[in-house]
């Protein structure tokens, strides 16, 4: 459930050359969310990736490509306005 800000669990992606997040809202929320990618050198300490955050309404699918990301990725989802309650599914699609 998207209610408060959350970050996905640390995920190791050193093998991948391409990455793309998909955030699929399974129920429509009344508010908006902002999503941003974070990277890490060790899976412990995280910093925002250079790519810009993406904002949008909580319906359908939001997607963000990521490149030059090093060895770890996570996605931070921040409800920004309105009633943020929505069931969402996060995919991280990776390719060599």
């Amino acid at each position: 459930m998207v209610e408060d800000e959350f970050a996905t669990e640390p995920f190791e992606v050193a093998w991948a050359g391409e990455a793309r997040w998909f955030l699929q809202f399974l129920s429509e929320g009344a508010g908006e969310v902002s999503v941003r990618t974070q990277v890490s050198a060790d899976g412990l300490v995280w910093v925002d990736h250079e790519s810009p955050a993406l904002s949008g309404p909580m319906r359908g699918v939001m997607t963000v490509p990521v490149s030059d990301f090093g060895h770890w990725l996570r996605l931070v989802v921040t409800p920004s306005s309105g009633d943020p309650s929505s069931l969402a599914r996060v995919y991280l699609a990776l390719k060599e």
Binding site: P10, E12, A14, W15, A41, D42, H71, W72
Partner: peptide
């Protein structure tokens, strides 16, 4: 996850054979 066994102190540890191991990680 396909893990290169990265750690804060040594960087990439690598697997027993090659770079990658399968990693199961709890919350």
């Amino acid at each position: 996850q396909l893990s290169s066994c990265d750690f804060f102190d040594v960087g990439t540890h690598g697997a027993m054979s090659g770079t990658y191991a399968l990693k199961l990680a709890t919350r």
